[in-house]
């Protein structure tokens, strides 16, 4: 059962990622990426990370992708702008580089002996243990993320101004 879900949703993530990279219209890319993030969320659930899976759907598939689609529609790209404009042989070059990287990393991973997952405590990955760790051991990084978000807000407001 576990392996059926893993292969189904892992395959879905790979196929939708490939579709995202190869579509010409960025709006189709964005929609395929949303499907890919849902598949990611299922994989996160299988790894006992329930809280992060919900955050993945809320933040990535919700907020970030809505922002992307919003910007794509705002930009009002003309039809001739969407023509594929790639460097010569870049497909072969990029595909070769990607396959080379996959083989390199996979060989590195598979060199170690196969490690199966241990049994976990029942509440692993729920909101309570994650939140407890977030507000005790990782309090300072957590507070610093709020500064990061503030900087991002100020930065996007400055970028959005018509005249700098």
């Amino acid at each position: 059962m576990e392996s059926i879900i893993f292969y189904a949703f892992g395959g879905l993530a790979v196929v939708t990622a490939l579709l995202m990279v190869t579509r010409q219209n960025p709006i189709f890319s964005a929609v395929w990426l949303v499907v890919c993030f849902f598949a990611f969320a299922v994989l996160f659930l299988m790894l006992n990370a329930q809280f992060i899976a919900v955050l993945q759907i809320l933040l990535y598939a919700g907020a970030i992708m809505v922002l992307f689609i919003f910007v794509i529609m705002l930009l009002n790209v003309r039809e001739e702008e969407l023509k594929p404009k790639v460097l010569q042989f870049s497909g072969i070059l990029g595909g070769g580089a990607a396959i080379y990287l996959i083989i390199l990393f996979a060989l590195g991973v598979l060199k170690e002996k196969v490690a199966s997952f241990p049994i976990l405590p029942a509440d692993f990955g729920y909101v309570a243990p994650v939140g407890k760790l977030l507000f005790t051991k990782y309090l300072i990084p957590f507070e610093l993320t709020s500064v990061l978000l503030l900087v991002a807000i100020v930065g996007s407001v400055v970028m959005g101004k018509r005249k700098l």
């Binding site: 576990e2 392996s3 893993f6 892992g10 993530a13 790979v14 990622a17 490939l18 990279v21 994989l43 299988m46 790894l47 990029g94 595909g95 580089a97 990607a98 396959i99 990287l101 996959i102 990393f105 996979a106 991973v109 598979l110 170690e112 196969v114 490690a115 199966s116 997952f117």
Partner: peptide
């Protein structure tokens, strides 16, 4: 039986699609 390696290889493939 799904092991750690399955997830690592899947993550590698997805990362390399992003690089592509």
């Amino acid at each position: 039986m799904i092991t750690l390696h399955h997830y690592l290889v899947l993550a590698v493939i997805l990362f390399c699609i992003g690089v592509f």
